[in-house]
Design a protein around this nucleic acid. Structure first.
Lengths: 337, 337
DNA sequence: CGTTGGCACTCGATAGAATAGAGTGCTAAG
DNA sequence: CTTAGCACTCTATTCTATCGAGTGCCAACG
């Protein structure tokens, strides 16, 4: 490692390189910078600085006699240094997010997929919205509904209004009356219990009731592990972001592995970051991608997160503004109802 | 139009061209056919026949001195003529579909998205599964569950076990007892009623109950129009199927417009077809795509459909077999539970 | 000493010319 | 009707030459 001394001029040059490259997708050269950017020194001086920046790992040349493009480290510095002031967020953007969330209605699941679509359309990158993980939600109500004599549908409504369902297969027929009793019993016993910490419930006397309740609780347990809802939209945006069809294929294939995306987002957030760049993701097929994430907060609690997957060469200020805006809007909307 | 006289040798040649082109993705020439295919004539004879096939619109040359590739009309003839015998379906494929549907479990919505994933993995093209349209389903049960004093969650379970939900905003607080009464009342009155033909219900005396029921019915009406569930999987397969990133982008963008895809499938089926090829689709961005569809049948009724979107240059026998297999499996599975 | 103009140098991108070869259509003979 | 033979066409490939953007370095300058 070369001794980094990042004076303000070098930083300004790095910033200008990133800005230019994000705009034009072409390696940027010293003379081009001298003309365009607000840097009042000659191209030769810029060349010297760029040389240093390259040796320090912030820039790289695709080949001799080409301009330079930022490395992951370069993007990292850019993000850490220049994207603190969130003031540059688009007013237009702000308006449309505002509007979306006041008009939004419908069930939770549509809320999430619509939010994901909103985000992908705002940014032109792929968007991810993860729903509240059921582990953190509390049981509000249980309903058992007869499908046919030996099969019963179990409905669970949680504290956030989300509905989960599961079919129970019974060994014996059961009466409507018993179903109603069991529904009431289960709701009473389990109301307020986190789905994550279900224990065996002891149920008085009646063996039919007992079977029903035991089956129901087993089903709830299964639910907990099954459901990690995640909504990913914007495949076509991925195809627009890269010009190698092979890269597109790799990225899309990775995004289709939902659990991978979810744990990726979780990892980033758990490090206290909200941006992960290229190799930082630690996922080979996403080496050319960056991820921008934000949790959303409902009633003071982080219940889920939204994220954005685009090329490392992405417009970080805009994307960060959008993600923050949307996560705030979503949290507020969900807190209201 | 030139007078078509499709003798059996010409048909065999057309068939061979399609098979070869589907395999290799390269224009196929006469000499290549003479070597590989089971056609016992010289390349010169094949050349003559191919010339005719081209004039009749079944084949086309990308340029002079290249081999030929099938036109949409060529694929159409191929599909209509040679894909009647479904006998060539893969045993391996058959097994895995069988296995999938015996092991499948979970809620309806997961069933559909899993089926979609199954189909895309079987065929390596993009898969579409449309859920039962709520218009055709019958109400089985209504539950009202208190979220907070002035907000109530309406749950509707239909005859197929699907659950729809909607939040009701009340002007006044309402007691748990009233909610239960209203749930019972609504279920009693509306059980067996098609969601599509809801009328005003008259409810005796109590104004609170009346408000609840009226709101509920209004909400059910909204539900009917809202929900047209569709599950599309396999974006990465699209990226593998075409080598122009621009085509990939166009196709993916089109697939993201769910209503378009749904009406596309509906149109094909309503013509009594199960394959639509390229220009037959009537959708410019899908000019290089074909669609293979099949309805699935639950209790004697077509409740939804599955489809597959790939390049016109697709393996029609395999895909048709897969789609038929999966639609049968899905229908059977849904009929059981 | 930092900055800058000048300059030789590198190397990808572009264009043109030459070549190879796959595949065709046509013709004439079997 | 089939087929061998052949001239012809046109893409793809290869090679070369050229262009030019951009660099690194050096010497001069304030």
């Amino acid at each position: 490692m070369v001794s980094d001394s990042m004076d303000s001029r070098k930083a300004a040059i790095l910033r200008a390189v990133v800005d230019e490259y994000v705009n034009c997708a072409e390696p940027v050269g010293s003379s081009h910078l001298a003309r365009v950017a607000g840097i009042q020194v000659s191209s030769a001086t810029i060349r010297n600085e760029m040389n240093l920046l390259e040796h320090e790992g912030y820039l790289i040349q695709p080949h001799t006699s080409a301009g330079r493009i930022p490395t992951d480290k370069g993007y990292r510095y850019y993000v850490d240094t220049f994207v603190n002031d969130v003031g540059d967020s688009d007013v237009l953007q702000f308006k449309s997010v505002e509007e979306f969330f006041t008009k939004a209605h419908g069930a939770l699941t549509e809320m999430f997929s619509d939010t994901s679509r909103l985000l992908t359309n705002l940014t032109n990158y792929a968007a991810v919205v993860t729903g509240p993980s059921p582990e953190t939600s509390l049981i509000r109500s249980i309903q058992l509904i007869s499908l046919d004599p030996k099969r019963v549908l179990l409905l669970m409504v949680d504290s956030k209004g989300a509905v989960e369902k599961k079919t129970l297969e019974l060994s014996d027929e059961v009466s409507e009356a018993h179903l109603e009793m069991a529904s009431g019993l289960l709701t009473k016993k389990l109301r307020g219990v986190p789905l994550g910490s279900l224990v065996e419930a002891e149920v008085s006397g009646n063996p039919e009731l007992y079977q029903l309740c035991a089956l129901s609780i087993a089903a709830l347990r299964e639910l907990q592990s099954e459901t990690e809802s995640v909504y990913i939209e914007g495949a076509s945006k991925v195809a627009s972001a890269f010009d190698a069809v092979d890269t597109v294929r790799r990225v899309l294939a990775t995004l289709e592995q939902h659990f991978l995306v979810v744990s990726l987002i979780r990892d980033v957030l758990s490090k206290g970051q909200n941006v992960a760049i290229g190799s930082e993701l630690g996922i080979e097929p996403l080496a050319e991608c960056s991820v921008v994430v934000a949790p959303y907060v409902v009633e003071g609690e982080r219940v889920g997160s939204i994220g954005l997957v685009g090329p490392t060469r992405m417009n970080y200020p805009k994307v960060l503004a959008a993600v923050n805006l949307v996560s705030a809007g979503l949290g507020k909307r969900l807190s209201e109802g």
